[in-house]
């Protein structure tokens, strides 16, 4: 019984079968990578998990509850957070505010009319936000505008915004896309560190094999809209079907 169960998901865009009968079972407290060549349907699958797209058929269950048909904010309230390919942050707000907002969302739900209280009197939430910034080595930048951060720090901030909500499941959409090797390695270390410190399930969609094989505990390979292989990293490496689809037959 996984924390996230995807069964029989189909999605068609006009004549294109983007996802064909996808089944996935994400086990709690693992890092599960979804890989596949360009156009395999990775992003479509992710968008189906977070409520951005509704699949034509199939079901997605999170923690025993159905996810499909819910709005993004409702899915987040169930305990799923998402990191985007290009960091989505509140650029005009300070780093600290960026991290406090998710705390409010977690405590007060999707909407609350707290128009007469002061942000800075919410000591408990402020402490929580400051401690996650300390954890991720961003505390000295807390008064900066988030838009002024470097790309790596923006990624770190987005991660902090997700983690401060203590999600049960963290979805990462190509977290190292467009990064230099050094930054990529930093991100890998960061994710490993996060995994060690807390109980969290991660689903990583990734292009970069180096990232996938240094992080993932389990891998699903997507090609032309269907899962063609699934298993431990060492099994995937040697799987001829994967090499055929993904690498055009070349040796890994």
């Amino acid at each position: 019984m996984g924390i996230l169960e995807v069964s029989g998901v189909n999605k068609r865009f006009g004549g294109l079968q983007a996802l064909g009968d996808v089944n996935l079972d994400i086990v709690e407290n693992t890092i599960h990578a979804i890989i596949g060549p360009n156009g395999a349907g990775k992003s479509t699958l992710l968008n189906c998990l977070i409520g951005k797209l509704d699949p034509d058929t199939g079901s997605v269950m999170f923690d025993g509850k159905p996810v499909l048909g819910l709005a993004p904010h409702q899915i987040n309230q169930m305990g799923i957070s998402r990191v985007f390919q290009t960091p989505e942050i509140f650029a005009e707000l300070t780093v600290l505010e960026n991290v406090v907002i998710p705390c409010f969302a977690k405590r007060d739900g999707p909407f609350r009319m707290h128009a007469y209280e002061s942000v800075f009197h919410e000591n408990e939430l402020m402490d929580k936000a400051e401690s996650i910034l300390r954890d991720l080595n961003m505390h000295m930048k807390k008064e900066m505008h988030a838009g002024a951060l470097s790309r790596g720090d923006k990624r770190r901030l987005e991660m902090a915004m997700c983690l401060v909500q203590e999600p049960k499941l963290l979805l990462l959409d190509e977290p190292t896309a467009g990064m230099a090797r050094a930054d990529t390695n930093n991100t890998i270390d960061l994710l490993k560190e996060i995994k060690e410190k807390r109980d969290i399930t991660m689903v990583v969609i990734e292009h970069d094999m180096h990232v996938v094989f240094s992080l993932a505990e389990k891998i699903s390979v997507l090609a032309q809209g269907s899962i063609i292989a699934e298993g431990l990293p060492q099994d995937i490496k040697g799987n001829p079907k994967v090499q055929e689809a993904y690498l055009g037959g070349a040796q890994l």
Partner: peptide
């Protein structure tokens, strides 16, 4: 207020707001 901060968040990035619950 927290409400005012949320309004600034609306101006800044509604997408992030939605995926923040």
């Amino acid at each position: 207020s927290p409400f005012g901060m949320m309004l600034r968040a609306v101006k800044s990035n509604q997408n992030r707001m939605k995926y923040t619950g």
